[in-house]
Nucleic acid binder design. Structure first.
Lengths: 339, 339
DNA sequence: CTACATTTTGAAATCGTTTTCATAACAAAT
DNA sequence: ATTTGTTATGAAAACGATTTCAAAATGTAG
């Protein structure tokens, strides 16, 4: 492999001048610039990125931590993040944590070892206490995930209010025994949603009973399992709020197969407005997040923090969401006409 | 940030010895090993990865090129690839080409600039002629994509035969005017599928007319568009082969909305056996690829080539697939009972 | 023509590791 | 006591770029 030295020799100039051309800095005559470019082409020269990273202490790379790309919401998110990052000249490296604490910490090492200039956390399973020390090694921004503390910038929607709205909608459709299926164990986001959900119930003199709360429900399969559990143990259930469209789809699928009518026998709400929620029969009511805006702001903030190493103030950006009402909750006036 | 020098000083030893401990090489007494580990912990030392990469000429990183992670097939693929890679101690960096030639070439630069030790191409839009030169910079393996030339290892299923089987199935179900919706423009894979599809038709005295061939059909939206096109311009169509479950889902969705019965009025076949194909009403007949096996072999081969830099022989691994028959093609005995 | 600023160039230091090579220490064998 | 072999350690070179600093060349104003 050709090095910068080889190029310099062939062009009859110094490494320094070649470096100037590579990074198109000023103070090189047009004539020499041409000579150097020719030499580079002739040798098929490409700068070694480990060397430049080592010397310049910049990697132009951002790590994005997320649970898994097979979850369509995160697929969409990473898509937008990458797009925006490349607009700013940054590469993105995708880090799937699978909701494992140790993986999250492993990936944060990328910041310490200087493999990345900054980190976007769209996955947050560790206690903040354990994450905080990494801030010494470089900027971290929370995307979608959030919490109460303020020592880091966060970009997200109001999950509590969103869940509140969803629950209210179910109540307005006549549901009286509403189940709650949630994904992550104890992330702040989950707690927020649950709080919002319970608030709505309480305001209508209802509450979430232990038996109607199901945890660790993440994908289509879990959704099916959840329905079967409810069918056997809580047959009077008439509505369900789920943490994702995939879970909602699983519920709808299993319920339909068992002869339950949706929404008459069971109204279903999903989350994230994935294509899937539209395609299901019946189409699923869901909450849409402004993914592109969130991604855009996240990158903007992080890049800013990378460049102005000095303390940029940490902020919180809360974006609006939308409850999209579809057939899966369209109970008209009648509800529960006997199964 | 603490460097190896700092650790050495604190422990009262040399850089070399510290390096030996870091890379757990032999010839360090237990006593000093302990002393060094303590020093590292005290300083919160982590080796700078640019420096080690530069010196050791290894990155322990693999680039995976694929069209987009939002396509569930590739989501699944990257999931498995990353899993396997980490078993071998390799990181994966995900590179979305969006089927753009220039992006594919840009990402291949990672190999030249020594940012990665090897590349997995699950996206191949450029001519092989333009890719080949990169082989000088490091190993490349084709995963899912393939071609006739033999200078690189390929892992895939027999797409020609798979498409043949799918077409044959449609024919056996009584379809006589079968449409063909394909994604990528001119990848070898597309050509193979089309050949297989046409072979089956020809063997039954049919052929693919220009009007029934639709290209550039990639996602759910395209599937809907395709159906509307067919409805207007080719109303006699009674079956359709699509390049992905997403497209198939789009067709089913649009068709159902327009009052067509599936499969009686239109039989539909997808590809990849994504969850979506099972969830649709009716469930969609599709072809399942052994993604995990493919991923596993791909990593195994690539890591081997990275380690034995000398010429490892290039090979071709062809895995079995399975045609999964579901409602979307279950025409029983009757077909086309008048619309 | 001198003085001063600006443009152009290169030698050498530097980034933080790993690797090479030389040497010291120690044990076992003659 | 000397040789031989193995284990243990460190000084210095190397990886391939960018950055610093000094100096040369050129331009410009007085």
């Amino acid at each position: 492999m050709a090095t910068i030295e080889d190029v310099a020799k062939l062009a009859g100039l110094s490494r320094t001048t070649v470096s100037r051309v590579i990074n198109n800095q000023p103070y090189v005559t047009e004539e020499k610039k041409i000579k150097i470019n020719e030499a580079m082409k002739e040798l098929g020269y490409v700068p070694n990125s480990s060397a430049r990273r080592l010397r310049s202490q910049r990697t132009e790379t951002i790590a994005v931590l997320l649970p898994r790309v097979t979850n369509p919401f995160f697929g969409q998110l990473i898509e937008s993040l990458e797009q925006k990052a490349s607009d700013y000249g940054y590469q993105v490296i995708v880090c799937q944590t699978h909701d494992k604490k140790y993986k999250e910490l492993d990936y944060l090492q990328l910041l310490k070892t200087k493999q990345v200039d900054g980190v976007i956390m769209a996955s947050l399973t560790n206690e903040w206490m354990d994450i905080e020390p990494f801030l010494d090694s470089g900027p971290i921004v929370l995307c979608n995930e959030y919490m109460e503390k303020q020592d880091v910038t966060m970009i997200h929607i109001d999950h509590k209010q969103a869940a509140y709205d969803a629950a209210l909608h179910l109540i307005e459709q006549g549901c009286r025994r509403i189940a709650y299926a949630s994904g992550g164990r104890e992330t702040y986001i989950s707690k927020q949603r649950k709080t919002g959900f319970c608030d709505a119930l309480r305001e209508h003199n209802m509450w979430l009973s232990k038996e109607l709360e199901i945890n660790e429900v993440l994908d289509v399969g879990d959704g099916q399992t959840t329905f079967h559990y409810l069918k056997v143990h809580q047959p009077e259930v008439d509505g369900i709020f789920t943490g994702s469209d995939e879970v909602a789809a699983g519920v709808v699928y299993a319920a339909s197969k068992e002869g339950w009518r949706i929404p008459e026998d069971l109204a279903v709400v999903g989350f994230d407005n994935q294509m899937l929620s539209l395609l299901m029969v019946p189409a699923i009511t869901t909450i849409e997040q402004p993914v592109e805006q969130i991604a855009s702001k996240t990158i903007q903030v992080l890049v800013d923090q990378i460049k102005n190493k000095l303390s940029t103030p940490t902020q919180r950006f809360v974006y609006p969401y939308e409850l999209i009402k579809r057939k899966s909750t369209d109970c008209n006036t009648v509800k529960k006409t006997a199964r």
